[in-house]
């Protein structure tokens, strides 16, 4: 089995146990033995990922107390008051993968104080769900929890956040890896879904590092290559870094370009305000 180095954070299904020193993100299945998982990974367990349907099993959910939990939410129908009570004893992060009901879910989850990661950018649902989500992040003065990836992008524009979408979405080669249920290895799931892998768990880490995909991603990471020709002249390349068209050069990133432009514009205004306040504000 591949011996992942210590600096790696590897996303792995619960059916596969990774030996070695790397940190792990474990994708749980309902009724997985949580005590056994804790014992097996100990401090190496970075966080666990569950799906919305598992929120219905309150007893099992309660066993996750003390772990960081990422919850992949669908339409949000399974969320109950009992689940909220349990989640309030944890520090959950909700990942919203579907644009259906996106705004409603953000509104509810943020009001409960849960950080939210919007990951619903498949390009097939038009701009509306995402631009509403962005507007909520930018304009709702009641918001007191981060809405990602907007918050990290804004921090990037303000000079104190992650450098590109590669970091924000946890696809940094040499830091992140993803293991499929079949043992295929890549930097994240989306690459495996299109058949782009470093290799499998039967390969040594050295062999994986020598793979074509790994070397290509290293070149992008190090700024020596944009992944797609259109990106070379893109005004948002400093933020995106070729991430959006990494897998598919034809991927429609217009929604994202709008997001970048809006956030950059708002970031400028925030910086202007900060500068004005630094100079004494109204009293200057």
């Amino acid at each position: 089995m591949t011996d992942f180095p210590h600096e790696l954070l590897v996303n792995v299904p619960s059916s596969i146990f990774l030996t070695g020193g790397c940190e792990v993100v474990v994708r749980l299945q309902h009724k997985d033995d949580i005590a056994r998982l804790r014992a097996a990974y100990g401090q190496r367990l970075h966080h666990v990922v569950i799906h919305e349907k598992e929120l219905g099993d309150i007893a099992w959910l309660s066993e996750l107390l003390g772990l960081r939990v990422e919850i992949v939410l669908g339409d949000g129908d399974t969320l109950s008051n009992d689940a909220v009570e349990v989640l309030n004893t944890m520090q959950p992060l909700f990942r919203l993968d579907t644009p259906v009901g996106l705004f409603r879910n953000i509104n509810l989850l943020a009001s409960l104080g849960y950080p939210v990661m919007v990951n619903a950018f498949d390009g097939n649902h038009g701009m509306e769900p995402v631009t509403r989500a962005l507007s909520y992040y930018l304009h709702n003065p009641l918001l007191n929890t981060p809405i990602e990836p907007f918050h990290s992008i804004m921090r990037h524009f303000l000079g104190n956040g992650p450098d590109t979408l590669w970091s924000i979405f946890g696809e940094v080669v040499g830091r992140n890896a993803y293991v499929s249920e079949l043992g295929e290895i890549s930097v994240a799931q989306r690459w495996i879904l299109t058949g782009l892998c470093f290799g499998t768990l039967n390969d040594t880490w050295e062999k994986l590092v020598a793979s074509g995909l790994y070397r290509r991603l290293v070149r992008i990471r190090d700024g020596n290559s944009a992944s797609a020709p259109p990106c070379v002249s893109c005004p948002h390349r400093d933020t995106c870094g070729g991430f959006l068209r990494g897998v598919n050069v034809e991927w429609p990133c217009e929604v994202w370009q709008k997001i970048f432009a809006d956030l950059r514009n708002q970031g400028r205004q925030v910086m202007g305000l900060t500068e004005w306040l630094t100079k004494g504000g109204c009293n200057a």
């Binding site: 949000g76 008051n81 509104n107 009001s111 909520y136």
Partner: peptide
């Protein structure tokens, strides 16, 4: 009591409350 405890989730899902920008201060 459970009916009142569940009320905010119902409202957020099933009524215009879920779309309201003041949800976080009104519920």
């Amino acid at each position: 009591r459970n009916a009142i405890l569940d009320r905010p989730l119902r409202l957020a899902r099933e009524t215009s409350c879920g779309e309201c920008r003041f949800w976080a201060i009104c519920h």
